[in-house]
Amino acid sequence: MNVFNRLLALVVSALLVIVAGAVLLVMLGLAEPASLSPAPWFTDRLEDFAALTGSDRAWTITVAAVLLVVGLSLFVLELLPGRREPPRLTVRQDGMGRVTVDRRAVQDLVSWEAAQVEGVREVRSHLIEGRDGLRVHCQVSVDPETSVPELTDTLQQRVKTAVERHLGRAVAAVQVDAQVAPLANGRASRVR
């Protein structure tokens, strides 16, 4: 179902890109209708567009350009990896069944590992299933007096080891975005 929807969205956005692109090329005089079109009826439509003049022409160009951009961005978004991530990671799938781990459980693991690292105050993690293995993206807020490069190193090692040991799957990369936590107490700033 999900795969089907995604495929449909891909096809629709691809069609949108092709049609809008063709119209645009013809109207800007960059291509001849006959050289672009695969079928006579489409050539006729394109020639209708090419014949437009004045404000009609300007409007059509604008609309086609907008449609082209919309189509392109839809297409790219659909193709981007990591979108609509399944809630579970599969660690094993064979004749005896499937073994999955909830994404949240892995995030808890990352949080737990991070909490063991000196200087880490809070962490939010995100998992991406890359072709070469799992990619873990951590956003951490750290104590101001901590050395960020050192902490990043330790955290990367810890997270990689822990995730690989628990899931039995390779971790391709652990990306750490460290942010120094504000010195002031968060509670104080909330109450003016």
Partner: peptide
């Protein structure tokens, strides 16, 4: 024929300790 397993959570023995460090 088939056993499908979903791991929903991990159990941390020192769960208490973890919450403590987080709140600090």
């Amino acid at each position: 024929r088939e056993v499908n397993i979903d791991v929903t959570d991990l159990y941390f023995a020192q769960q208490q300790q973890q919450t403590d460090t987080r709140v600090q």
